[in-house]
Write a protein that binds this DNA or RNA. Sequence first.
DNA 1: ATTTTTGCCATACATATGTATGGTAAAAAT
DNA 2: ATTTTTACCATACATATGTATGGCAAAAAT
Lengths: 207, 207
Amino acid sequence: MSKELTNIQQKILDYIIDRKTSIGIPPSLAEIAENFNYRNRATVQQHLASIERKGYIKRNPKIARGIEVTLEEKFFIPRPVIGEVAAGNPLTIYPDSLDSIELPTIARMPKDSFLLRVKGDSLKDAYIFTGDVVIVNPNLEPRDGHFVTAVLDDAAVVKRFYKKSHKIELHSENPEYEPIVIEKDYSGFKLVGVVVGVYRSMERKVG
Amino acid sequence: MSKELTNIQQKILDYIIDRKTSIGIPPSLAEIAENFNYRNRATVQQHLASIERKGYIKRNPKIARGIEVTLEEKFFIPRPVIGEVAAGNPLTIYPDSLDSIELPTIARMPKDSFLLRVKGDSLKDAYIFTGDVVIVNPNLEPRDGHFVTAVLDDAAVVKRFYKKSHKIELHSENPEYEPIVIEKDYSGFKLVGVVVGVYRSMERKVG
DNA sequence: ATTTTTGCCATACATATGTATGGTAAAAAT
DNA sequence: ATTTTTACCATACATATGTATGGCAAAAAT
């Protein structure tokens, strides 16, 4: 990347990336202006010109909201990790999102999903390791065979979900372990969400 | 989701998702019209109204390119997997993108990146397993410690990259293996790209 | 000391864009 | 048989949006 951004330019770039990654629609000049309390779009226009000249974005002339972000230095964006999950232990939710990972900008989070960092190697039979991040969607209805995150008697688990007539079965990936069978209205069971994926950043994996 | 989409509606939705996930800018009505050879935007407008009525998108009135995609059934989008990588074996590139995975819409691919499916367990010392998909960016300059995909003497490898003065070192994750040292201009070495992430779909993992 | 860059303003303009309305025809649903 | 939905067209309109130009002041670079 050619040059460093000034403070303001960096903030504008952050805002653009945030808008694109959260709601999926790049902001217009007017919206950027409003966000930064500018009375005029021309101010934004000039900032964008600077940011583009420095190579961080690419603008599509005449096209509304036509800002593309050039991903290089800005390849990773911080995303809050809201807690930890470790089979056998209680589900830890960080009070103020202390932790965050550098999720690649390619990995856009849907609004309703969240990230949990995996701790301990108790999930290794599911090929999930310490430091990996599971993407959990709490609003998805789990289907048979889906991996789910759940709290069972105050312990967090990541297991395969199977729905029987009046029971729920949680299967381990390791066939040596017997499935856990739960009555459907057992109060000690709380489904957290469906694990839609595992993401592992290759930045600083410990060998 | 409320109702099924018609063929045309589905194609329009796919087009919108494709535009949002590839270049990051939702299409305007005019662009959709052009893509589908409609002479008029109003046609698109009416299709979008139908798609929205069925709950697949949310439109932001008066906002240019203000189409948000409601992710539920459409949580996963197919992405082509262009080949296989298995340490020790040649890099296999599928002739016509035979394979594809259901990548979650959260995982937005930058235009220049591609996916490679991992085969064999020879990468297990890097915690990468059969069926996992590595996201490779060929236009990224690798830094020390980055995982890279490379072809060395016709064999594909995924290893950590280290740049010395006139040599390149490829480190295995397993400390028992000695690093591979390559002269910088050795013709048998071809860098494929930087592995920016590993994604594992939890849909149908074999236990 | 002088020039360039940064950071903001205002006004004006062209057009990109979403929207409204009305019409036609075929297919699907009732 | 009738109504609704689908799938297109055309014309017209309001405004959202990017752009051009000129001006001013402070900070930074030369």
